[in-house]
Structure formats: C-alpha cells, structure tokens
Amino acid sequence: MNSGLKFSIQDGIATITLDRPEHGNAIDLPLAQSLLKAAISCDHDSSIRCVVLTGKGTLFCAGGDLGAFVSAGGEISGFLSGLAGTLHLAVSRLMRMNKPLVVLVNGPAAGAGMSLSLIGDIVLAQRSAHFTPAYGAIGLSPDGGLSWQLPRLVGLRRAQEMLLLNKKASAQQAQDMGLITRVVEDGQLEGEGYAIARTLAAMTTPALGRVRSLLLQSYGNSLEAHLEQEARHIAELAAEPHVLEKVTAFVDKRSHPSKQEFRHG
C-alpha cells in the first residue's frame, strides 16, 4: 500500500489502519488512494471474512488534510474533486463488499473522518472519542457520505442540527442518538473490537453479505421490491450445501436436547 495507511490480514480478518498520526490521520490524496486499494483487496480477497477499520495514535481521523488544500492554491476545486472522488470509491467498496465491517473509533473523528467512522456495520468508540462535522467551520459541505448517513442514523432534524450548526457529539451522545453501536472504555477498544471481528469471521460470509446488501437497499426499495430481493437472496443462499447441513444440525440438536438442557427446559 502507499504511504499513510497500513493493511494486514490475520486469521481471516483484514485490518485497515489510517497511519498518519503526526497529521491526525488527515486524508491526503496518497492516503485516499491507499484506502481505495485496500478496499478493493478486501472486496476481492476470498480469504478475508471480516474487515476492521481504525486509526493510529490519539485521533481516528481529523478529516481532509487542510495543508494539502492550501498547497493546491487556485487549483483547490479540481484537487478536492479528485480527493473526494477517490475517497468515495473507497467508501462505496467498503460499504458494498460481501464482508462485514467493524470500525474502531480510537479518538476524535472530524469532517471526512466522521464520515469514515460511520460506515461500519458495527461501530465502537472509545469514551474519549468525539464526532464533529467540521465542514461549516471552513465553508465547505460534507463528503464521504456524511449527509447520506446522518439522516438514516439519527433522523433528519438531528442531522440538520449537527451539519448546519457544526455540532459536536461526545461518544456517549453518539451512542444515545444511534450514531454508533456502543461506547467502550478507553484501553478496551481493540480487545472488544477484535472479539466482535472474530465472531463475524466465524459466521457464514455470503449470508452476512446478503444482510449488508438488503439493509443498504432498504431505504430505496419499495416494500414489494424489497420482499422480492429477500426471497431471491434466501433462496440463493439455501442452494449452498452448507446451509442444509447447518439446518439439519440445528433441528437435530433441538430434537435431542442434552439432559442438562432438558432439566432447565
């Protein structure tokens, strides 16, 4: 991978780490390009069963690299078009891949960093983390899917307040409003996050992929179109040999409970 990002795979779990701690893991073009390459690898590598996204150091991600914005000078419009476009390809891959995504928010997330922090299926944040849209402070509008995610996660009114007033949310407030899955005490994020990742990696990846796809489509589909997609997905998954094996084993276990289960049943 290019500079600014670390990518590793162990026991079926891919870890993507934003690795510019001296810059608050701010997103410049090399980092966005590296993130896209990592996302493509996660999408296509069949050995990967779950993906973890996190940051190195005390921040998850400070957003776009403002120094790079300044360096672009009069070409800033074209520069931001390219930067956002690359980032968006990575976000789309990570959200549409056939593997679950766990995001571990190890510190403050702002701007595009806040956008990235919300794309996971499971999002854990350290108690010391916080979330800030930040775009209004520099006269810009959101990127990275933030204006798409926020209304779906917290409702339109709360999204309007956060984006228009550049309102910061603590980790606890983020949990209370449904912005993240759960707050984790500082120092416990990695342990709890990878426990979840291992659980997901041990499950049936194609089924998890179909769940991700159905949930992503749920806001755009009509009821009838979504019911049709559910019927197609469950039928296609049922054609896999391991499904019948799992169902048979489950029925057999229920039909022949252990003595201990019988005593408590």
Rank of each mutant, 00 (worst) to 15 (best):
S8K: 13
D11R: 14
D11Y: 05
D11W: 01
G12L: 03
I13W: 00
I13T: 03
A14P: 05
T15N: 13
T15I: 08
I16Y: 06
T17Y: 02
D19S: 08
R20H: 04
R20Y: 06
P21L: 05
H23I: 11
H23S: 12
G24P: 08
N25F: 06
A26P: 08
A26G: 11
I27R: 05
I27V: 12
D28S: 07
D28E: 10
P30E: 01
P30M: 02
P30N: 04
P30R: 05
L31H: 06
L31Y: 04
A32E: 05
Q33R: 13
Q33N: 06
S34T: 08
L36S: 07
A38N: 10
A39L: 02
A39M: 03
A39S: 09
I40A: 08
D43I: 01
S46A: 05
S46K: 08
S47M: 03
S47E: 08
I48P: 00
I48L: 03
R49W: 00
C50K: 01
C50D: 02
V52P: 02
L53C: 00
T54Y: 01
G55D: 00
G55I: 01
K56I: 03
K56N: 00
K56P: 01
K56H: 01
G57K: 02
G57M: 02
G57A: 00
T58N: 03
F60N: 06
F60W: 10
F60G: 02
F60M: 02
C61Y: 13
A62V: 03
A62Y: 04
G64A: 13
G64N: 12
G64I: 10
D65F: 14
L66D: 14
G67S: 14
G67H: 15
G67C: 11
G67N: 15
A68P: 14
A68H: 15
F69D: 15
V70M: 15
V70C: 12
V70E: 12
V70L: 15
S71N: 14
S71H: 12
G73W: 09
G73L: 13
G74I: 14
E75A: 15
E75Q: 15
I76R: 11
G78N: 12
G78K: 12
F79V: 09
F79C: 11
L80H: 06
L80R: 07
S81Y: 07
G82L: 09
G82Q: 11
L83C: 07
